[in-house]
């Protein structure tokens, strides 16, 4: 268990949040033109990184807003939290 600094509410327990998976996967602009391989890549394939990962979270038992997080998945340390649409503050 760890604490998450919600960009709207401040620091709360992780159990208030829902993880939304890998961030910055852009929905295809022309879905009808995608090949099966490209659909599979968009829908299913994930980096699943051991280390620094960019991901989406939702403060589901709080403000219910979505935001982004940079987290080290090898030790659950949070590196940064930023709002949707913003550029990641770390590389």
């Amino acid at each position: 268990m760890f604490l998450i600094n919600c960009p709207f509410c401040g620091e709360r327990e992780q159990s208030e949040f829902k993880a939304g998976g890998e961030a910055h996967i852009v929905r295809p602009k022309q879905p009808t033109e995608l090949s099966d391989d490209e659909w599979a890549e968009y829908l299913f394939m994930r980096k699943n990184i051991k280390g620094i990962q960019f991901e989406r979270w939702n403060h589901v038992h709080g403000c219910r807003k979505w935001f982004n997080m940079v987290r080290d998945t090898s030790n659950d340390q949070i590196k940064a939290v930023y709002k949707m649409g913003e550029k990641p503050p770390v590389k």
Partner: peptide, 11 residues
């Protein structure tokens, strides 16, 4: 529900 390699889960 989150990706982690830490071998620790939530309480």
């Amino acid at each position: 529900d989150y990706v982690s390699y830490s071998q620790k889960g939530s309480h």
